[in-house]
């Protein structure tokens, strides 16, 4: 089982390395240490992987039929979305010349798209609101734990 996991994990790794197009990343100058960004992105990917595996296990064990575990599954799904979103945001951030920010020090700060990059800028703008994924995720976790607790109490009473 574990061997299978590692295989899966490695294949994902290669896929993401391919997708990330290192040469593109190299060209950017937003990060003076590109390996930092790489590690960060890989960590996000690792997170996605572990959550996916988690969901996979929950489904395989048939635990998702249980309310608590189902909630936990939703939580993992939210975290996957959030990580994907964060990876996208980091990626767009690392691209040079898509947009610039003005009046960064005030509340009136704005994001100005460079010519011809309106769509990317818009995507980046919404991707930046990554909390819309991770907050529901943790709420699901909270609900799942509550569910477990209630059930454990019920068992004890029995």
């Amino acid at each position: 089982m574990l061997g299978f996991n590692i295989l899966k994990l490695l294949s994902y790794l290669f896929l993401v390395l391919f997708l990330m197009q290192p040469d593109v990343a190299h060209a950017t100058q937003a990060h003076s240490y590109p390996e930092g960004l790489y590690v960060h992105q890989l960590a996000h990917f690792f997170f996605i992987l572990s959550m996916a595996t988690f969901i996979y296990w929950l489904r395989e064990r048939g635990l998702s039929r249980d309310k608590g575990w189902r909630l936990l599954q939703y939580c993992a799904l939210c975290f996957i979305l959030w990580n994907a979103d964060a990876m996208l945001a980091h990626y767009l951030e690392s691209q040079e010349g898509l947009f610039v920010t003005r009046e960064q020090t005030t509340l009136d700060a704005v994001l100005i798209a460079s010519g011809g990059h309106t769509a990317e800028t818009l995507i980046y703008y919404f991707a930046k609101m990554d909390h819309l994924f991770c907050v529901p995720g943790i709420i699901f976790l909270y609900a799942a734990l509550r569910c477990f607790l209630a059930k454990a109490r019920g068992d004890r009473v029995k």
């Binding site: 100005i112 818009l122 909390h131």
Partner: peptide, 24 residues
């Protein structure tokens, strides 16, 4: 196209706080 950064900050702030609260 000009997009205000304020909503992003607001969501960041609120989201981070909620994350901390719920995680605890």
């Amino acid at each position: 196209m000009i997009l205000p950064l304020f909503p992003i900050w607001l969501i960041d702030f609120a989201g981070s706080s909620l994350m901390i609260i719920f995680s605890f």
